[in-house]
Nucleic acid binder design. Structure first.
Lengths: 125, 125
DNA sequence: CGGCATCCCTGGGGATACTG
DNA sequence: CAGTATCCCCAGGGATGCCG
């Protein structure tokens, strides 16, 4: 399929880009993956995801909630408690993301090697 | 990584993040998808990928080449000619990326609907 | 044609402080 | 505890111009 499928593939690519824009940001997948193990409180997520600021965690959670990938359940107690969990849609996203993760694991050494070679080739120039 | 069950999943997530950092930028998947149809010249890629500047296209291609996902073949003629093509590793990446694309297509209306609802709920506040 | 180099500006995202 | 608000910095990336 070299030529004829160009048109519709392009429109698909835009969609893929949008998903990657959603999922490809710095923290979303880590949140999704963590919630893939089960519901978590805000502080649990913050502790579990290394290096995330509460600002970015909040923004990430808001974005995922907006897209219907996670739910946000507030328990107005003292101290307050907020639980996040994947929706069914969110869980379904877990599958292709894991596929990408498997690819990453499977090809990490290959990619790293390619980088070393490329860097070595370009250093002495 | 605080407890034992999250250990291996966390290290995987870092890898996934790295892949998404590579593939999740603004142009990489579009380049990969286009090259998935067959080798392309620089100008063909530029024309085929809407909105990309030659600067970003160059940077994207360099990054993908560095990671061993594409090859760059220079034909020193007048005018010069440069052909890009996916490597086997690059082709293998096409699979999980397409899986993500399929998810995007399958869930686009659902996600869009969730957004509309969320935005409507937050507008009147 | 296929680049690099330069300028410049936007916004992603960290650190910190305050609130219900 | 779970945020919101503010400040600030720097990398991503567009526009333009020059070169082999």
């Amino acid at each position: 399929m070299t030529n004829s499928s160009t048109v519709h593939h392009t429109s698909e690519c835009v969609r893929v880009s949008e998903v990657l824009a959603r999922v490809g940001d710095k923290w979303s997948i880590q949140v999704i993956a963590t919630l893939g193990e089960g519901p978590r409180r805000f502080s649990e997520l913050k502790r579990g995801i290394d290096g995330v600021s509460q600002r970015m965690l909040t923004l990430t959670l808001r974005g995922l909630e907006r897209d219907g990938l996670i739910t946000r359940k507030v328990t107005p107690s003292i101290p307050p408690r907020v639980d996040y969990a994947l929706t069914d849609v969110g869980k379904s996203l877990l599958e292709p993301v894991k596929a990408l993760g498997d690819w990453a694991i499977a090809n990490r050494t290959t990619v790293d090697a390619a980088r070393s070679i490329y860097d070595a080739r370009t250093d002495d120039m």
